[in-house]
């Protein structure tokens, strides 16, 4: 199976005036296409930092990061943005929907930024809203939806561009258990359809949906369990 992500000796530091904190300490692992990987660890272990680097939102301070056969660790913001918008979808704990846009418009936004034509946009947005069962809510604003619904919109937005990779940062953190399970089911479905998923979570329950769990501590990988 093809490797989609390969990181080697990845490093990231945060510096304030007096203290230099190591967020990632020579971290290495690989993720294959179609895998569902959960990353776990206590707060401050570097999970989110890792996710941001994998999501091309942030750049590493050292080491190598090969995404889809391309070395991206030295990419500038522009190149990263370009690669990101075509290949990666994000789901956040706090949904991060844009309040001023309706459900429909929120989901449409990534397609606008990737330059998809209006007809095609309409078709794809409606398709994905149907699939997420929130078509009837398409004219509502985020504040008018429940948390579960908001996260479904966020997932719809993450997948509307058919990304190769979905990065989920505690996707069920703000949801009750039934809504949480629904979102996990959604992610599983997407994974079964071929999308690679990397999910950061505190929840052992959610982690069980994945194929492999990477546990981290102090910016380093501690263990790696394969579940299936």
């Amino acid at each position: 199976m093809k490797t989609i992500i390969s990181i080697t000796d990845l490093e990231k530091f945060y510096s304030t005036d007096e203290v230099r904190t190591i967020a990632l300490n020579k971290l290495s692992f690989k993720v294959n296409e179609g895998e569902f990987v959960a990353i776990m660890g206590p707060s401050g272990c570097g999970k989110s930092t890792l996710l941001n680097i994998l999501g091309l939102l942030d750049d590493p301070d050292g080491g190598s990061f090969i995404f889809n056969d391309i070395e991206v660790s030295d990419f500038n913001e522009r190149k990263r943005a370009n690669l990101r918008k075509h290949n990666i979808g994000f789901v956040f704990q706090s949904f991060n929907l844009i309040d001023e846009l309706t459900v429909y418009e929120n989901v449409e936004l990534p397609l606008i930024y990737t330059g998809v034509k209006p007809d095609e946009r309409k078709k794809r947005v409606e398709e994905v809203l149907e699939k997420m069962q929130i078509m009837h809510r398409r004219k509502h604003f985020p504040q008018q939806l429940s948390g579960g619904q908001q996260q479904r919109v966020a997932v719809a937005r993450a997948v509307v561009n058919n990304p190769k990779l979905i990065l989920a940062d505690e996707p069920t953190g703000n949801l009750d258990s039934s809504n949480g399970n629904e979102v996990m089911d959604l992610l599983t479905e997407l994974n079964e359809a071929g999308t690679t998923i990397i999910m950061v979570t505190h929840s052992e329950h959610d982690a069980k949906y994945s194929h492999r769990i990477i546990r981290m501590l102090d910016g380093q990988k501690v263990t790696e369990n394969v579940l299936v």
């Binding site: 999501g55 939102l57 943005a81 990101r84 918008k85 075509h86 991060n96 929907l97 844009i98 936004l109």
Partner: peptide, 9 residues
């Protein structure tokens, strides 16, 4: 969010 979804500067 706009930037995450690929909006350029």
């Amino acid at each position: 969010m706009r930037k995450v979804m690929g909006a350029s500067k």
